[in-house]
Design a binder for these strands. Structure first.
Lengths: 261, 261
DNA sequence: CATTAGGTATCATTATATAATATCTAACGC
DNA sequence: GCGTTAGATATTATATAATGATACCTAATG
């Protein structure tokens, strides 16, 4: 913690947050030692911080195993987030309508650095658990929503993003070649929407249209996931796209400002 | 902070959490002074803590207005929670099926102290925003899910709860009389499910069945919300209840342990 | 242009977090 | 049944790092 030598920086708070962030899909509950190992904090610090988080109701502790895990308070944070993001309230009723009309899974995604994050999900078909969970972050370049949003940015910006933003393989068919991704974004610039196949789940197809902010830059995207076994690009463009675009346009409100740090 | 004189308690971390918890449905973004006023912390402390939270990515700061609001990290916390709660993964596919079969809004609720908390929500009909947001906490006694869960506890426990747990009015028809609530829980003990009307939203009806843990105590409930204009108790019992109970039973896994502090 | 409310920066002081160590607990092997 | 060990919990002297008062900006407002 020698790097953050700033009197406006409270190290203990930052360390506490590190404990919270240590939990993810592959670290669902942890013992004191595991927490210490994973955060890089020493045993004593971990003990004090975890204890504080427990007393304050942020971590549940199994009395038997003494292992810690996220408490209900973590869901309450999502609750507060939803009220703070003006886009969600605007979008929710329209997304519900859309999912009912299509009978297919509909998602709302926002740009979060070089990733997209799923803000709202309305699953209609049985699917992988990971595809139903809000708060999931994925590399923007590997998603239809990310490409659709990028396509609304000035050309130099999106080209820089295609060149530098992270990519990683999720399925054998995840596109790792940046030229292919560039072509996909180019198409999205031209068409106003993006379609992808098998990027996150084998044989899953996704189509996304941007929700434009007042400056013409996308602040979010409406996305629809369907099975590649029963759908192809043409049918998606014919049957899903029109309603998807109507929904995205209906959400785009001129008074909304993009989120920023 | 003189009360928590415990060497295993890190005051700065606890104060930071107070800032986070200051945000809710009626405090969606706050200035430094508002945060200080609302948390009771002095200006300097608020400044340092808010700054730390901002640097660590937990609070977004509008460059123009200098106001703070929850960041995407708050959604990532929900993401981690979902993976940590074994019930959710178990329930999700079954809840999706149920909502598709019924064509009505389906929720998964857990007991959280004397409140219930909505863990998963699958809205099918346009409704109030508050009725679509996960992480919402409501007094257990005022909800069908809470009553259905209470009814699975030993008699002395649920009677004590009916006598002492908090109630507050949400609509003109919210039940404030504990005798009426007691009768409702008694019915749920007998029937194995609970139906309520107009507790949270005028003319909204809800039906809930408990998900039983290995000890016979409910750890959660599956709940369905419908409009009181088109549904009545008999039709709910005839058309919704059977599928609701099947779903709840299919979720109840003997190996799951209830969450606890 | 003066006023002021609110945000930002500084700094001496000591309260408060630290990390090393010791103690307790329960699971495991022999 | 006993010894061993890994892990959780408690204690304490020490100095770091948080504190809060104050002063300085900045940008609205009349």
């Amino acid at each position: 913690m020698k790097t953050k030598q700033n009197t406006l920086y409270v190290g203990s708070l930052a360390k506490g947050l590190r404990l919270l962030r240590a939990f993810d899909e592959s670290h669902r509950e942890m013992s004191l030692s595991e927490l210490a190992a994973r955060t890089g904090l020493d045993k004593s610090a971990t003990q004090r911080l975890a204890n504080t988080l427990h007393i304050e109701g942020m971590l549940d502790k199994d009395p038997g195993t003494r292992r810690f895990r996220p408490s209900h308070a973590w869901l309450e944070m999502a609750y507060a987030y939803y009220w703070s993001d003006p886009l969600v309230g605007q979008a929710m009723p329209k997304l519900i309508n859309l999912s009912q009309e299509l009978g297919e899974t509909v998602n709302l995604a926002e740009l979060s650095g070089d990733h997209i994050i799923y803000v709202s999900r309305l699953p209609c078909k049985r699917t992988y658990f990971a595809a139903t969970v809000i708060g999931r972050r994925l590399p923007a370049l590997s998603t239809s929503a990310g490409r659709a949003m990028l396509a609304t940015l000035p050309e130099d910006e999106w080209r820089a993003a295609v060149d530098h933003w992270p990519i990683k393989p999720f399925t054998p068919s995840t596109t790792l070649d940046r030229d292919t991704i560039r072509a996909s974004v180019e198409a999205a610039v031209h068409d106003g929407y993006a379609i992808s196949k098998g990027q996150m789940i084998l044989n899953e197809m996704a189509v996304a249209t941007p929700i434009l902010g007042p400056d013409g830059r996308a602040c979010a995207a409406v996305q629809c996931s369907v099975s590649g076994h029963t759908w192809d690009r043409d049918r998606i463009a014919a049957e899903i796209l029109p309603k998807l675009q109507d929904t995205a346009n209906a959400i785009s409100p001129s008074f909304l400002s993009p989120r920023g740090g």
